[in-house]
Design a protein around this nucleic acid. Structure first.
Length: 863
RNA sequence: GCCGGGGUGGUGAAAUAGGUAGACGCAGAGGACUCAAAAUCCUCCGGGCGCAAGCCCGUGCGAGUUCGAUUCUCGCCCCCGGCACCA
């Protein structure tokens, strides 16, 4: 083994071998323990980016590791292939979404293969293929039949000039990103999934996902947002109707002095008719239709409202309460109406001050008296009830229950729970998505397409219309159909397509039997593989994708299609890949290779102008702070690229890209290569040392222990917490140690221990740098692939140390250290610490108050 | 704004259950090898004071709990992710 490490040749060789041997192809093997490892599938945007490389490298290490531990590992890959970017690219490059998507998939598959990932490529899926979405349509119909899918009116961003619905992303500062004109809120009939039926269940099981990071379950719980309170009816003055509100503060109902309705609330317009406020309300509604109504925007807007001209009656006090339309009230939450208690709610307080509305204190703190006129903010703390008739004097916490019970008893309201979670709107007025398999008939209404007609194929050759409009509504060959109810030839197909989150909510189940044609999946395959044992992906999906997937898994279970309830047993959310951005005055943002780093600072390679270095942020095309993995692969090879992704930071942390760090990784691989080369002749025929420490002379015993310590460290770093960076560090330490072993004086035992060391290094690194490991493994004389070798095990006996290092502190500060026999008694250690020369100096003349002893670690002397 | 996370040397990071802060890399400095360079190998590398032994300071900022805090608690500052039609 003389020659240099040449990644290109080695990587191609082993990729071919893996491919030809079909070693990553798996099937159900009930006698073997299964392990389903899944990484979030990519959107086929054109090229692999560093975020993908990182995500899939992490996954591949775990997959290969588990395989070496004897598991039957399912590790599939596919494409989240529907979505808006294909439409945007089609418009920008005068191509077609389907063509663009399929070309991207081919390019990206090649890149993934170059990285040497251990996928079972025979299971590849693309969600834009009819074979896939056919079952999504089938499921939609099942859900419709069970009442889990329904239609209601809701708002969309509408651009009048483009005649299109816009995604939130396509609205920039209230304007359309294509034509720059204002965007309006428009009401449309749309399809929804009744996810709120599962709100409680999804919430409760957040606490039964021990393999998930707490931060993710916390975010999900907050997203579901359960609150316990009461629904109270406020009769409208001079009308037979009442306004229903949801509140968690029914204890403050005696302090409610006005009512706020969401602008979208149907009563707003109704109540203002034929009142002097009619015009003001119309103007307000006009303004609101131009305002961004997302929660984010609503929270940050200046609170404003308009009197509707109508009043309602506080059912507890009989007080006349003006009814307002207010921009901070959300139609989607509770009932879309808020009983306003300005004394005890900050938002209501600000609103009352602004519009000069009455403030009545009903909860009084123990330590002071509240004066409504002098208050500077709402009092939201606890206290005793005042101005609340029969409830006066009791603690407000108790009043929560008492008042709820009273309301119920008097028929004025009832105890209830409310969720922040809303039903999942899945309708998209877009072309590049799964057609919703419904049919509109003038006579029969809305009916599902007959199952035999599935899939309802998206016409792939259709072209987008101007402004990015979906061609489907105007495509007669698509829309024209026969009504399955009455046979009328004038029925029309639904032209909305589904949210792409729908495809990604069940793809992990489809992977279990991806070519199954008789149903969504083959029962025995899903039963064997599901749930996913380890799911890995970006933290940006912590809420929506994961919640929708959990929901879908419940739906499938309730439809009797699968057994499993939670789809992902363990979850790892990885951080983003970041890099500083660079820009020059003339050319704006610059790609990293457009910047020349000179002595007087960075310069633009195009104009030689000065370059400003921006902050480190997520790699994105728009900021041009991207590293093309393709170039990296070419320059350093897959193994070095993979190693750097793993070494630079632990997975959950953001990773800052640094070119020099990559070179360090290549250097390390070269170092291992050289170590193997240097020792090859000595160790090739020798079996790895299998004895115990007692069989070795002291200097080899140390190497022997180091090897076992490394195996233990690497194993627990991978198994328990996926901290590959520290695992790699540990191997580096072992390699550094092995470099210190003298090659001059040879002995059989030395060769045997070195063989053990080198084999361990290669085996421990093999999930991370698989091509490199295969090559050295082969050169060490092994006839079969390293993939078939078992993961190394450490011996507890090998780790035992004769002596331990004890640190001495005086008042918590480090003052000395000494070595002692591992089995020395506490008193001996204390004595040794106290008699230490340096320590003496610090305790001299001061009485010893306490001596703290931590076994095998430290002695702290308190004086 | 709300929810969640993060902040440690010149730099990426480590310290797994409150116990030696900075492992392992990168960059840098010095040396060896070389005609020379590259590669490689060896040594040094948080700040201040000191000839030295050593002492003091130091994990975003301020307080607290503790014999002992990067780690726990409270308050603040800055950065990042999500906020329902980007995926």
């Amino acid at each position: 083994m003389e020659e240099k490490y040449t990644p290109e040749a080695i990587e191609e060789k082993w990729q071919k071998y893996w491919d030809a041997s079909g070693i990553f192809k798996v099937s159900e093997a009930p006698e073997k323990e299964k392990y389903y490892l899944l990484e979030m599938f990519p959107y086929p945007s054109g090229k692999i980016h560093m975020g993908h490389v990182r995500n899939y490298t992490i996954g591949d290490v775990v997959a290969r590791y588990k395989r070496m531990r004897g598991f039957n590992v399912l590790h599939p890959m596919g494409w989240d292939a529907f979505g808006m970017p294909a439409e945007n690219a089609a418009i920008a490059n005068d191509t077609h979404p389907a063509r663009w998507t399929y070309e991207n998939i081919d390019a990206m598959r090649d890149q993934l293969k170059q990285l040497g990932f251990s996928y079972d490529w025979t299971r590849e899926i693309a969600t834009c293929r009819p074979e896939y979405y056919r079952w999504e349509q089938w499921l939609f119909i099942k859900m419709y039949e069970k009442g889990m899918a329904y239609r209601k009116e809701s708002f969309v961003n509408w651009c009048e000039p483009c005649q299109t619905v816009l995604a939130n992303e396509q609205v920039e500062a209230g304007m359309c990103w294509r034509c720059g004109k204002p965007v309006r809120q428009k009401k449309l009939w749309q399809w929804f999934f009744r996810i709120t039926d599962y709100a409680e269940d999804l919430l409760v099981h957040c606490d039964q996902l021990p393999g998930w990071p707490d931060k993710v379950t916390t975010m999900q719980k907050n997203w579901i947002g359960k609150s316990v309170g009461a629904e109270i009816r406020f009769p409208i003055e001079n009308a037979s109707k009442a306004i229903s509100v949801f509140t968690t503060r029914q204890d403050t109902v005696f302090g409610a002095t006005f009512m706020c309705l969401a602008p979208e609330h149907p009563l707003v317009v109704e109540l203002s008719r034929r009142t002097p406020q009619q015009e003001a309300i119309d103007a307000f509604m006009d303004k609101m239709s131009l305002q961004d109504r997302s929660a984010k925007a609503v929270e940050s807007h200046e609170k404003e409202g308009v009197f509707t001209g109508a009043y309602c009656i506080n059912p507890m006090t009989g007080r006349r309460m003006p009814i307002f339309a207010a921009n901070f009230a959300l139609m989607e939450y509770g009932t879309g109406a808020v009983m306003s208690v300005p004394a005890h709610d900050q938002r209501d307080f600000e609103f009352a001050r602004k519009y000069n509305l009455d403030i009545i204190v009903v909860v009084s703190p123990e330590d002071r008296e509240l004066d409504p006129a002098a208050m500077e903010e709402a009092y939201t703390g606890e206290g005793r009830m005042v101005n609340s008739d029969r409830f006066n004097g009791i603690p407000n916490r108790q009043a929560l229950d008492d008042i709820a019970a009273y309301l119920e008893q008097e028929g004025l309201g009832k105890k209830t729970v409310s969720f922040r979670l809303r039903d999942w709107g899945i309708s998209r007025q877009r072309y590049w998505g799964t057609p919703i398999p419904m049919i509109h008939c003038d006579r029969c209404g809305i009916l599902p397409a007959p199952e035999a007609d599935l899939p309802i194929v998206l016409p792939e050759e259709a072209a987008l219309l101007e402004g990015g409009r979906s061609p489907l509504p105007e495509l007669a060959e698509f829309t024209k159909t026969t009504c399955p109810g009455c046979g009328s030839p004038d029925a029309r197909r639904e032209t909305d397509t589904m949210d792409t989150f729908v495809e990604s909510s069940w793809y992990f189940e489809r992977y279990c039997s991806p070519r199954h044609e008789a149903g969504m999946f083959e029962r025995k395959a899903v039963d064997y593989w599901m749930p996913v044992d380890q799911y890995i992906g970006g933290v940006e999906h912590a809420i929506l994708h994961l919640l929708y997937s959990r929901y879908f898994t419940r739906v499938l279970r309730d439809l009797g299609l699968i057994d499993c309830k939670e789809p992902f047993t363990r979850l790892l959310t990885q951080g983003m890949v970041c890099k500083e951005s660079t820009a020059c005055d003339q050319h704006g943002y610059l790609f990293p290779d457009q910047v020349v780093w000179k002595d007087d600072g960075p310069r633009c390679s195009l104009c030689d102008g000065a370059v400003t270095v921006g902050r480190v942020e997520k790699m994105s095309k728009s900021k041009k702070n991207v590293i093309d993995p393709g170039i990296l692969l070419h320059q350093y090879g897959a193994d070095t690229t993979r190693l750097f992704c793993l070494f630079a930071a632990p997975p959950e942390r953001d990773l800052e890209w640094n070119e020099q760090g990559v070179e360090g990784c290549l250097r390390f691989l070269n170092r291992v290569w050289r170590l193997a080369t240097d020792w090859m002749d000595h160790i090739k025929g020798t079996p790895a040392f299998g004895g115990g420490p007692a069989d070795l002379e002291p200097d080899l015993r140390e190497l022997y222990r180091k090897i076992h310590e490394t195996i233990k460290k690497v194993t627990s770093d991978i198994e328990d917490r996926f901290h590959f960076n520290t695992a790699i560090s540990a191997v580096m330490e072992l390699v550094n140690f092995m470099y210190g072993i003298d090659r001059g004086a040879q002995s059989t035992s030395k060769a045997a221990v070195m063989k053990l060391g080198l084999e361990s290094v290669i085996l421990l690194l093999s999930p991370m740098v698989p091509h490199f490991a295969e090559e050295i493994w082969e050169r060490l004389g092994n006839a079969s692939s390293i993939l078939l070798a078992p993961w190394p095990v450490y011996r507890e006996k090998a780790l035992v140390k004769d002596e331990v290092l004890i640190v001495i502190q005086v008042n918590g500060k480090l003052r000395g250290k000494f070595s002692v026999d591992a089995d020395a008694g506490d008193d001996t250690i204390k004595e040794m610490a106290l008699s230490d020369e340096k320590v003496q100096k610090f305790i001299e003349g001061r009485p010893i108050r306490k001596v703290v002893l931590v076994r095998n670690k430290l002695v702290n002397i308190v004086v």
